[in-house]
Simulated scan of single mutants.
Amino acid sequence: MLKPAAPAPQAFQAIPSLEAFPEALRGAVVGIGNFDGVHRGHQAVLEVVRETAKTLSRPAIALTFEPHPRTVFRPDAPVFRLTPEHAKAVLIEKEGLDGILTLPFDRAFAGRTAEDFVDTILVGRLGIAHAVTGYDFHFGKARAGTPDFLREAGEERGFGVSIVGRLGDEGDETISSSRIRQALADGEIVLANALLGYRWFVESEVIDGEKRGRELGYPTANMKLAPETRLAAGIYAVRVNIDGVLHAGVASYGRRPMFDNGAPLLEVHVFDFSGDLYGKRLGVTFVSYLRGEETFDSLDALIAQMDRDSEEARAALASIRPLSPLDQALYDLPHARQA
Rank of each mutant, 00 (worst) to 15 (best):
P4T: 12
A6N: 09
A8R: 14
Q10V: 15
A11I: 14
Q13R: 15
F21E: 02
F21T: 06
L25G: 07
R26F: 08
R26V: 08
I32D: 01
D36S: 05
G37I: 11
V45S: 06
L46H: 03
V48R: 14
V49G: 00
T52D: 05
K54T: 14
L56D: 04
R58N: 04
I61V: 15
L63K: 05
T64N: 05
P69K: 13
P78I: 13
P84Y: 07
H86I: 12
K94Y: 09
E95D: 09
G111A: 13
E115P: 00
D116E: 15
I121E: 05
L122I: 13
G124R: 09
R125K: 15
A131E: 04
T133Q: 11
T133L: 14
T133N: 05
T133C: 14
Y135T: 10
F137W: 13
T146D: 00
S162V: 12
G165E: 05
R166K: 12
L167W: 04
G168H: 02
G168P: 00
D169T: 03
G187C: 01
I189N: 03
N193P: 01
A194S: 13
G197D: 00
G209K: 10
P227S: 05
T229D: 02
A232C: 03
I242Q: 04
D243N: 08
H247G: 01
V250H: 04
S252I: 06
S252W: 03
G254C: 01
R255M: 10
R255K: 12
D260I: 11
P264S: 04
L266H: 07
V268I: 12
H269Q: 08
D276W: 03
L290D: 03
E294F: 10
E294V: 12
S298M: 06
L299C: 11
L302K: 06
I303Q: 10
E311K: 09
E312V: 12
A315S: 07
A318H: 04
R321A: 14
L330I: 14
A339G: 05
A339R: 09
